[in-house]
Amino acid sequence: MYLTLLLCFSSLISAQEIQVWSGIEYSTVAEINERFEAETGNTLAIREFDINNIRSELLLAKQTGITMPDAIWIPSDFLGLHDYFDLAKVPFDWIEEQSIESKALELVTVDGAIYGVPLGLGNHLVLYVNTKLTKEVKPTWERLLDDARRGKTSLAMQYPNMYFFMAFVPMFSDHHSAPITDIDVGALAAAFKFYGALPKTGVVKDELTQDQARDQFINGEVPYLIDGDWALGELKQHFSTELMISSLPTYNNHHMHSLSGGKVLAFNAEAMENPDKRKAMRTLAMIVQKPEFIEDVIINQNLISANRSINRKWYDTDSSYYSDLYKELTPAYTMPSSVEMAVTWEALIRGYKRYRAGMPADSAAEFVVKFIKKHSQHIYKTRKSLP
């Protein structure tokens, strides 16, 4: 009896509750939780955030001394601010390097160290087509603009959204800048004008949420929807064989190029110093890289996994949309996990608001480029002064 009580007591002591903040795909994290609890006896306390708010919440928690999460499920471009989020370096032996996609490893590597476990690739935009409503599966912007002039709205798209907006910039540039944060002022100004005119011409509705745009498409109001790979799961519930994934529209024979990134699991540096939590988090990292987890959860959530061989297996499967998503990932521009990329989003929001308020497009574009340079340099200088 005494031994039984002692064993139970020691089990309670060693059990860990890992605090997880989730910025993307709550359903994926819930599945991780179920498997983590079953395998370890530990629990995940999951707090869900809108993707647009989690960055500011993490920075606020750091500045105010609020308890930081032990782990976070975030887009890979967040890793550029690993100092400010107090993210830990992930040991190399926590990563299944032999099977990982090279692009996935690149996304989690910052300043020569790994700061996250990659779970999914993609985060790219595609064109969804309802083939019951149209035979044209690759419309141009000229065609969409012409439809709008004739009083017919053919396209649904969340508006405004800076992630979506960035896919328009390459249509006005003859060169792919590397990294993508080296933005051409002329291309950015032209994109401001084109993108800003879309609701005025009736091509899209202004102030339209992601859900509202999807509802337009699902309800058969429009034949086309620009949305991310993350929308496929919901869309498959409403369509059967009439749903098709196609490439983004062209303009003057110039292609849009979506951004792409990864979905990563990252860990708090302070939590890593706790031996019991570190052990639990290592187990968590191993669980999400198991082939059965990847196939059951990542693939079935319509995500492109970070596992090279599993991706190839599903790419060759005709009965899924996997190959279509994978194909449209190729022309997408990879977001670097850098300080500049993290700053770019705030710069774009401010620049676009200025343009809509009346600032000339060229001036708004120059503002964005200068903002990225100025504030990135400030962060780098601040980093040098960190203890």
Score class of each variant (00 low, 15 high):
residue 99 S to V: 10
residue 342 A to V: 11
residue 131 T to P: 05
residue 313 K to A: 13
residue 233 G to H: 08
residue 345 W to E: 05
residue 70 D to F: 06
residue 7 L to G: 10
residue 165 F to S: 02
residue 131 T to R: 08
residue 354 R to S: 12
residue 236 K to H: 03
residue 201 T to Q: 01
residue 167 A to L: 04
residue 122 G to M: 09
residue 10 S to T: 14
residue 141 W to P: 00
residue 249 P to N: 00
residue 325 L to T: 11
residue 272 M to G: 00
residue 71 A to V: 13
residue 290 K to A: 15
residue 50 D to Y: 09
residue 334 T to A: 15
residue 191 A to W: 01
residue 145 L to Q: 06
residue 158 Q to N: 08
residue 354 R to Y: 14
residue 121 L to Q: 12
residue 50 D to W: 07
residue 33 N to M: 10
residue 341 M to K: 15
residue 48 E to G: 10
residue 22 S to I: 11
residue 326 Y to R: 13
residue 55 R to H: 13
residue 288 V to S: 14
residue 382 T to S: 10
residue 177 S to R: 14
residue 202 G to V: 01
residue 243 L to A: 03
residue 282 R to L: 07
residue 352 Y to F: 15
residue 323 S to V: 03
residue 308 R to Q: 13
residue 320 S to A: 09
residue 369 V to E: 06
residue 151 G to H: 11
residue 244 M to P: 01
residue 245 I to V: 05
residue 224 Y to K: 05
residue 53 N to T: 06
residue 333 Y to H: 11
residue 100 I to M: 13
residue 111 D to Y: 07
residue 376 S to V: 02
residue 75 P to Q: 12
residue 232 L to D: 02
residue 80 G to Q: 06
residue 199 P to A: 00
residue 384 K to N: 07
residue 344 T to N: 02
residue 350 R to Q: 12
residue 135 K to I: 11
residue 138 K to T: 03
residue 263 K to I: 12
residue 179 P to M: 07
residue 294 I to P: 03
residue 116 G to N: 09
residue 364 A to I: 06
residue 350 R to L: 13
residue 257 H to N: 00
residue 351 G to S: 03
residue 136 E to H: 06
residue 226 I to K: 02
residue 227 D to P: 03
residue 295 E to W: 01
residue 101 E to K: 14
residue 220 G to T: 07
residue 101 E to S: 09
residue 145 L to D: 02
residue 115 Y to K: 14
residue 105 L to Q: 15
residue 348 L to H: 01
residue 49 F to V: 14
residue 83 D to R: 15
residue 58 L to D: 05
residue 221 E to L: 09
residue 197 A to G: 01
residue 183 I to S: 07
residue 359 M to S: 14
residue 48 E to R: 12
residue 240 S to H: 12
residue 314 W to H: 12
residue 297 V to D: 07
residue 23 G to F: 12
residue 368 V to C: 12
residue 214 R to P: 01
residue 77 D to A: 14
residue 366 E to T: 09
residue 162 M to L: 05
residue 1 M to Q: 11
residue 179 P to W: 06
residue 383 R to E: 04
residue 248 L to M: 02
residue 296 D to M: 02
residue 296 D to Q: 05
residue 175 H to V: 12
residue 198 L to H: 00
residue 85 F to H: 04
residue 95 I to D: 07
residue 261 G to F: 05
residue 4 T to S: 08
residue 348 L to K: 00
residue 161 N to E: 07
residue 2 Y to K: 06
residue 22 S to L: 15
residue 247 S to W: 01
residue 259 L to H: 03
residue 90 V to C: 08
residue 349 I to E: 09
residue 174 D to Y: 15
residue 295 E to Y: 01
residue 224 Y to C: 02
residue 108 V to W: 10
residue 46 I to Q: 13
residue 61 A to R: 04
